[in-house]
Every structure is written in C-alpha cells, then in structure tokens.
Design a protein around this nucleic acid. Structure first.
Lengths: 272, 272
DNA sequence: AAGAAAGGTCCATTTAGTGGATCATAAAGG
DNA sequence: CCTTTATGATCCACTAAATGGACCTTTCTT
C-alpha cells in the first residue's frame, strides 16, 4: 500500500464521502445534481454514486425522487441542532447582530474560525436597499480575507498567524484572493492590532467594504468576530467612526456573555 | 469480494464513519470518549481511531485536547444551518410550540418522520414543575411509539404503515418497546385515525402521557406532528379535552404556513 | 512503584472499494 | 417519430485501500 506518497491515512473513501457531503451542503437549497458533483469532485461516476447512496441511506443526504438532486438530509439537520449547544456564540450573538443591523442599516455578520478558515455563521440583513451579498451564511474564506476574518486572524499570536498563512499559501495565490499576498496580509494584521478593528476596503470584491471586531472566548482564544459590510459609498470616514463604537460595544457584550456558562447541560451516557 | 452475503454495497468504511459520527452526536454536549465509541460500535480500536481522526480532520468532529473526548464539530453545525432551509417546519413551528406550552403549562414537541422513525426536532419546556423528560431534542423512536410519532404514522396510507411496521419489527421486539406488538400498533393507528389525535397513556414510560396531532405538508404527505407530554396525574379526561383544541388549532395553523412557500431562495451554482 | 486502563501506533494481510466499460433512460434536435 | 446527446444507473475483474491483531506509551489507581 502506497502510504509513502500523499494519501494521508487509510481513509480515502471517508474523505471522499465527507467532501461530497459538504459539496452538497454548499450547493444550497436547490440541491446538487449528480453530474455536477462528479465534475466538482473529479471522481469517477460510479464512485460518486456509490458514496452518495451510502450518505442517503444514512439520512445525512436526501435524494429528490423527481429531479434526482441531492439535498442535505434530516440527520444532518439534527446533528447541527445538537451541535448548537457547543456553538452558543451563535445564539448569543443574534441579539447583538439584530441591534447592529438595526442601528446602522447595513448587514451584520458573525464569523467564527475553523482551522485556517473563517466561516460565516450568520448574516443579519440590514434595511439599506443597496447591499453587498459577498458574504452569505456558510461561506468560508481563508483567515484574513474580509473584515471579520481579518479580525479573527489578528487575535492569534504571531507564530500561529505564520502557521495559518503558510497553510493557506496555495489557496491565497488563487485568482480570487490575488490582493492578499503574504506581505500585504502581515501588514493588515499589524494594522488591525494597532487600530483595534479590521477594515476591508473592497479587497475581495471592489465596492464591498467591511468593518470587523474580534471576540475572544473565556479561554482567551479567538472565538469569532462581528462585522458590518456595505457598499463603498456608505463608507466615508465619518460613517466608519459612527459604526465602530456600536461594533465594539456589541463585541464586548458578546465576550461578556461567553464568560457566563449558563444553561444546564442535560445528563447523558450510561453503561451496562 | 463477498457481495452476496449481508454487506450492502462497497461502503463499509463510510457507513462506519457515519455511525460513529452520529454516535458522537447522540453522546450530547459532554462528548464521547474513544473507549465508549469502541465499545458501542464493536469495532477494533485502531479502526475507530482512524475513522474518528478523519472526521476530525474534516471538521465534522472536534477532539478536546485535554480530555480526548470527541464532540460535534463546526462543520456539522454549519451543515445543519444550511439544512435549516429545508426544514422550515422547525422554524415555523416555534411560535406554535411556545403558545402551546404557555397555554397548557406542559412541554410541547415537534417531531418529524425520518425513514421509519420519528425524530424530535424541538422541545419547548412548560412551566409546570413536574415534567416528563422522556422525549428530548434529537431523540428518535420507531414510528408509532409516542404520541407525536403515532400521529405521524397514522397519516401514512395502510400499505406504507405495514411497510414501516415490518421494517421496525426487529426494533419493536426490543425490551424497550415491549408494549408495542404489531397488533397493538395497528389498533393504535386505527383509533388515532378515528379520533383525529394520538394518545399515549404511558406506553413507553409508565406515568408519562402524551397527546399528539399530525401535520401534513403541502404535498399531502405527513410532515410532522405537534404533541404535548406530561405526567399521568395531569391527564384526566377534562384536561385532555381542554388541551386538544389548542393542539388542533396550532397543527392547522402550521399546516397553513407550510402551504405558503415565502422567503426567496438565493441563487447558487455556477459553471465554468 | 507496580498494576490497570485508556490512548496511540505499526504493518502484513485481504477484503472492501475502485473505476473502465456498458447499459438504461430522459431531454434535445431534426 | 426517430436519432442524437446527456445524464443517470449498473456490472464486475482487479488491486490499492482499509483492516485489525499485536504491541507500545501515557495516565490514572491503589
């Protein structure tokens, strides 16, 4: 068995299965067609089908009888609900996000770190009619890309930042992230730390600007970030100065709430 | 390769992975220890470890550095969030569940069918201090077991009911479900259809009684059930008659809401 | 400090998973 | 209505991927 080259461990099929599962998730509510998944994964058709069938059997995916499209299944939904307990930050941030979008009229976001990425857990729509739709719930970008993501990256100690940037070199040299050279990224982190907030002047998508503030968990580690995004024209200096205090207040409040465990966890686990 | 005997298809490792993933989910917020998972799955240690490692790498699980316990990971959470779109019934039922538990003082539940089971998606706590904790979020029982579950089963046409009961024969002959012989189950279904509601006089757990009403989706298929559970002493005839109209009203209202699609789905999927 | 139990690793064996080839069915086109 | 084309579904001989018995390491227990 060629353990020496590439292949991480004896888990090829599992990794393929998970990749397909997440691909279906990313496809959104419309679901994913078998062919698209074949193309996207680069795997042979029978393999994809076999794996998807197993996922459907387990309930993690659903297959529409008519359209043959795959959707996320009930089992995945329940799993997410159960995970909710461990992601209290999401529930706890909802009030703050509502207040933020209310007060500013712009969309407000909660992002959390996941490995070397940041994931958008929530998007609270603002009232202003011209909106940026660059960041949607579930979207992920390498840490540092976007206001919230940059705010999170900047909370890590230097050695971790380097490790993260290194791990992301391949992805960051993609066309999509061309504005983010390692050098630029390090400057952004330095500036973010100095200012106490992250600023994204349309680096990912010209015209879509953002402002973010990091939130630490009770353990002092980066737990996430609150951010606000809007089109460029709404972001003059005066406005940024108006928004910032709100963001910082909500971030502080969220950090506070994370410190109080609250809610009784229910007992489980029994042995025969 | 022994395709002839048992083994469904070439997906052994994937099925093991999913089984372990769900096992960790079931373990709840405290997480699951490696040894417990080895015991529970009956698989050899190295196999369990290899699989779990792959799940952690993917982010579907987390492993606590200190305790070595496994927890549901952020990726699973996000997947659940994305699935939320397809489980609008959950969001749509929250108001009704709150009103139900408010009005009756008892705990109110939303259950949905999943294959031959019913899964509890939500538990809205009531105010009355003596409560039954037989049904928790995420819990699953064979269709027919419990008030909500029985209400769902009764909405299926006869041939499907038979198919479901047959598929569940093995599980239903377990000690836990000993009150539910196929004969009893068919009687329960008949009665539920006649009365228009499901009644569970402590059949699963003596003293824990329940009342359930089914909800159909826009396609006419069973979409779920609302139910109320309380300890036996709170369930005299008069009380049941008080509660029922509430349940039926909320079930009707939910059915109504399910008929209106609302909310614009966002566009996705692009090809090169 | 010895013993027990849980976590972690190694690697020869073989079965589970692979994927090229092929068939079936559903849309698109004449 | 009958091709053509695209997509979905299936078969099965081959072998690399996954397996798991044996063994090592760390962390509690006594």
């Amino acid at each position: 068995m060629g353990t020496t080259i590439a292949g991480v461990d004896g888990t090829q099929s599992i990794e393929r299965a998970i990749a397909l599962l997440l691909a279906v998730g990313r496809a959104g509510p419309e679901g994913a067609r078998p062919t698209d998944l074949v193309t996207e994964s680069g795997l042979p058709k029978p393999t994809v089908r076999r794996v998807l069938k197993a996922l459907v059997r387990s309930g993690l995916l659903d297959q529409d009888d008519g359209s043959r499209r795959y959707h996320i299944g009930p089992e995945a939904y329940v799993l997410g609900l159960l995970a909710g307990a461990r992601f209290g930050i999401h529930a706890m941030s909802l009030g703050g996000l509502a207040r933020l979008s209310q007060a500013t009229g712009d969309s407000a976001f909660l992002s959390v770190p996941r490995d070397t990425y940041s994931v958008c857990l929530h998007r609270e729509e603002g009232s202003f009619p011209l909106r940026t739709h660059v960041l949607q719930m579930g979207d992920r970008h390498p840490l540092g890309v976007g206001a919230g993501s940059l705010a999170i990256l900047s909370m890590f100690p230097d050695d971790e930042v380097e490790r993260i940037l290194e791990a992301n070199t391949a992805i960051l040299s993609t066309e999509l992230y061309k504005s983010y050279s390692p050098k630029v990224m390090r400057e952004l982190v330095a500036r973010t730390r100095r200012d106490g907030y992250a600023f994204n002047p349309g680096m990912l998508m010209p015209g879509s600007w953002g402002l973010g503030v990091g939130v630490r968990g009770p353990d002092g580690r980066p737990a996430g970030a609150l951010s606000i995004a809007a089109i460029e024209r709404r972001f003059d200096d005066a406005r940024a100065e108006t928004i910032l205090p709100f963001l910082q207040e909500e971030a502080a409040r969220l950090e506070q709430r994370l410190r109080q465990p609250d809610a009784e966890p229910r007992p489980r686990q029994a042995k025969p």
